[in-house]
Amino acid sequence: MSALDAVRARHSWSKVTDDAPTREELLTLVAAAGRVADHSSLRPWRLIELRGDDRVVLGKAIAEAEGDKKPSSKPLRAPLLIAVVASFRTSSKVPRWEQEAVASGVAHTMSLLLDDAGWGVFWRTGEYTRSKAVAKAHGLHKDEALLGWLYVGGKPAGKKAGRRKSVDARAMLTGMPAKTKKKPAK
């Protein structure tokens, strides 16, 4: 399958089975995702693998962040969660927003690679990703930000992935406004 075919075929899977890729399978995909465009090769990201009771710990942290007494069951919706962390580096050339974009690019590339490998994936975010309780549960450092989690599991037999509307490419790809274009030199 070509990269274009893989991107066109990708869907979010909000319901997955209890199957999940092994750590060894993940390492191969992480190494490939690390090839994302990265100004100055700062590698301003890291991924945290959550399985088993790690998800229960996260559920408690989400509950604390939201002011709930009962742990959130959201992290139990997939057997594997991959926390996506922007790890900001000091750089005079690469601003924080660009470093966060790199981490986001790694997450999206991971979702494409996991989907292409046959796994169901969806990216979950929420206001609590920036909470102290959730940051502490993940062991984040002061120069790190949690961007969300990739929920990963098996694709259920007979189920369809979430639908996305087609993009109107002509509306999304524009040229420079005419008034800013310079006339060619004679």
Results as ranks from 00 to 15, higher is better:
residue 51 R to E: 11
residue 105 G to D: 12
residue 86 A to T: 15
residue 142 K to H: 02
residue 179 K to S: 07
residue 170 R to I: 11
residue 143 D to A: 04
residue 182 K to H: 14
residue 51 R to Q: 12
residue 115 D to V: 13
residue 127 E to I: 13
residue 51 R to G: 03
residue 127 E to F: 14
residue 133 A to I: 12
residue 68 D to Q: 09
residue 142 K to Q: 04
residue 112 L to I: 10
residue 123 W to N: 12
residue 66 E to W: 07
residue 175 G to M: 08
residue 12 S to W: 06
residue 59 G to Q: 09
residue 15 K to A: 03
residue 181 K to W: 08
residue 84 V to Y: 05
residue 172 M to P: 00
residue 182 K to M: 14
residue 52 G to L: 12
residue 38 D to W: 01
residue 47 L to R: 12
residue 41 S to H: 10
residue 147 L to M: 13
residue 167 V to M: 10
residue 36 V to I: 07
residue 29 L to Q: 06
residue 101 A to Y: 10
residue 171 A to D: 09
residue 84 V to M: 15
residue 160 K to G: 05
residue 46 R to K: 14
residue 102 V to H: 05
residue 186 K to V: 15
residue 128 Y to M: 10
residue 62 I to R: 04
residue 78 A to T: 06
residue 90 T to L: 04
residue 30 V to Y: 05
residue 176 M to F: 13
residue 60 K to W: 05
residue 111 S to G: 11
residue 103 A to C: 12
residue 16 V to Y: 00
residue 141 H to P: 00
residue 48 I to V: 15
residue 37 A to T: 02
residue 48 I to Q: 13
residue 120 G to W: 01
residue 41 S to M: 03
residue 138 H to A: 13
residue 113 L to S: 10
residue 17 T to H: 01
residue 20 A to H: 02
residue 9 A to W: 07
residue 105 G to C: 11
residue 141 H to S: 05
residue 117 A to F: 08
residue 145 A to P: 01
residue 177 P to T: 10
residue 129 T to R: 14
residue 26 L to H: 06
residue 85 V to W: 01
residue 4 L to F: 02
residue 36 V to Y: 00
residue 94 V to M: 04
residue 33 A to K: 14
residue 168 D to P: 07
residue 40 S to D: 03
residue 51 R to Y: 04
residue 166 S to V: 15
residue 117 A to G: 08
residue 169 A to S: 05
residue 169 A to N: 03
residue 161 A to H: 02
residue 71 P to M: 07
residue 136 K to T: 11
residue 165 K to L: 12
residue 183 K to P: 07
residue 71 P to T: 14
residue 59 G to H: 10
residue 141 H to I: 01
